[in-house]
């Protein structure tokens, strides 16, 4: 396999190689973006966080009738931070409310990924108007520094973690950006 890759490196133009590397990087990015640890909060207009892949039934929504509302922080009913404390925690107690040093909330609705295909999320992430206003360099930086993203990879207490690390995700975003943010169907 490595010989084949080497042979391709020698015979394919640099642009095509970057495109392939970008597409591979995207596949790894989508493996993170589609992981329940991420999609449980990257939900749509319903504002209902999910509890997928936590050992409950398939397609579970957050227990206790939790709705984060239009505010995305639960301001209309019960703020997320009532249970998800805004302070770094060990998160070592199963089934307790995870906490990080940031106000727990849902991402903006335009970043809804739950149930979406690789192409759909790809189209969302490469456009600043659909990715919360980030250019690619800012997006990689966000991934490296966000307490939320970091939590997704280290959720603690036996919880399923998103695949890889924050650094690997940031590097994949940079590879994908260098390749021109390719999406399937371009």
């Amino acid at each position: 396999m490595r010989r084949l890759a080497l042979a391709l490196t020698l015979i394919l133009p640099a642009g095509v190689q970057a495109q392939d590397a970008g597409s591979s990087a995207w596949d790894r990015i989508y493996a993170v973006a589609s992981h329940p640890r991420c999609t449980n909060c990257h939900v749509g207009e319903s504002g209902r966080p999910a509890w997928d892949d936590l050992g409950y039934a398939k397609d579970s929504v957050h227990g206790m009738n939790i709705v984060a509302g239009e505010s995305r922080i639960g301001a209309e009913s019960i703020p997320c931070r009532v249970c998800h404390i805004s302070a770094e925690g060990a998160n070592n107690v199963p089934h307790a409310a995870p906490q990080i040093d940031e106000a727990w909330r849902l991402p903006p609705v335009e970043l809804a990924w739950r149930g979406k295909s690789s192409v759909e999320v790809c189209q969302q992430l490469r456009h600043p108007e659909a990715n919360d206003g980030f250019d690619m360099a800012e997006l990689a930086e966000h991934v490296r520094t966000s307490a939320f993203v970091n939590y997704g990879f280290k959720p603690g207490a036996g919880r399923n973690a998103a695949p890889g690390t924050t650094e690997e995700l940031a590097e994949d975003l940079e590879i994908w950006a260098a390749a021109g943010t390719p999406c399937v169907g371009d």
Partner: peptide
Amino acid sequence: GIAQCGACTVHVDGVAVRSCQLA
């Protein structure tokens, strides 16, 4: 003890919080 029942709710500066979760 895991923020699943609400019995321990108090306020911090007027905002509800589950006191079993707040160090």
